[in-house]
Design a protein around this nucleic acid. Structure first.
Lengths: 189, 189
DNA sequence: GTCTATATCAAGATAGAC
DNA sequence: GTCTATCTTGATATAGAC
């Protein structure tokens, strides 16, 4: 089955690329390194992804797809209510249970590699975020609060990626409580 | 005066590097391009900054220094009160007047260039942020609110840098009002 | 203190065999 | 579909003249 073999190779190469990027950072993600990690030659790699940009694009797309899937599953479990989307997102980003951290770690550096050269590669992620924001607003959350939740959680995510600041577990917990109050809290703030 | 000549050359090269990075992006910031922009040869450039990393380090340091200076000046004008540091920072990041945008634009990409290869280069910025957060807390702002302000404004900054999301002017204004309420608002939220 | 010329190297990409 | 071998480019860095 050609289809299957091909698909598997692609997935394996994407796995390898993620592994490389985690081990050696964005700069270290060379085609040679990815090929070696995947156990194929550079030529073999370039058969599946004709350029490095194509590879990165596929990485971003796969990660965005996984994120959406995970989010949709969590959303299905969440009771309908004003802060439904917001709570699910908050839990994905900061929660202990059902946390999204592992996936975030995987997505973080490839995303950076991607955007450094070409912001267009972020389009799939942008679409997911726009949808998320709309969901929050449809839940009844005031738009400025939606922006606040999104920007704060993304700020923390970027800090982590850049190893810039790392609030302690206790501080994060208190921040999370504050955000929950903002989601559920009175309209008048 | 050797000192002066040397210092001027360094500053001019740093200006050139910022210009290049703005025009051609992080990836396009090659030594050749910087040298051409500065009107010196590559050899001349490498006399002042022995490696590209040294150049980037100097860029980050200068930007961090300028940011601190700007902040200190604004802080001096701000009346003492609970949200002093927070208000100044908020205005620097989101305000129309006294806005920090131009400087942010200049700092954004070099910062990214810097961190992609070596997170240690962010040390000067990290120090500035730590100081800012302490200032907010000393003003009387609850720590979790300080984290919220910092993370939200940094999230928006990163969005801008990555051209990921761009809230409209009206949305930003409403967000700003919300943040101001969080700075000045009641302790009990 | 700044230049020219050049060395070195690694990355992305291609061609053609198998 | 995958490999080996090779090409091209462009970036960092050095040596030595001026």
């Amino acid at each position: 089955m050609k289809r299957t073999r091909c698909t598997n190779s692609r997935e394996e190469i994407l796995d390898a690329a993620e592994a490389v990027v985690q081990e050696r950072g964005a700069v270290g993600m060379t085609l040679d390194a990815v090929a070696a990690q995947a156990g194929v030659s550079k030529g073999g790699l370039l058969y599946h992804f004709p350029s490095k940009e194509a590879l990165i694009e596929a990485m971003v797309e796969r990660i965005a797809r996984m994120a959406r899937k995970h989010f949709a599953e969590e959303l299905a479990k969440e009771p309908v209510g004003r802060g439904r989307h917001a709570h699910v997102f908050l839990r994905m980003m900061l929660g202990r249970k059902g946390s999204f951290f592992p996936l975030i770690q995987r997505m973080a550096t490839p995303l950076f590699v991607a955007i450094a050269g070409n912001p267009d590669l972020l389009v799939p992620m942008r679409a997911a975020y726009a949808e998320l924001r709309l969901g929050m607003i449809k839940d009844g959350l005031p738009p400025e609060r939606a922006w606040l939740i999104l920007s704060a959680l993304d700020g923390i995510k970027f800090w982590r990626i850049l190893q810039f600041m790392e609030p302690s577990g206790r501080e994060l917990k208190r921040l999370r409580i504050l955000l929950e109050k903002l989601i559920d809290g009175e309209e008048t703030l």
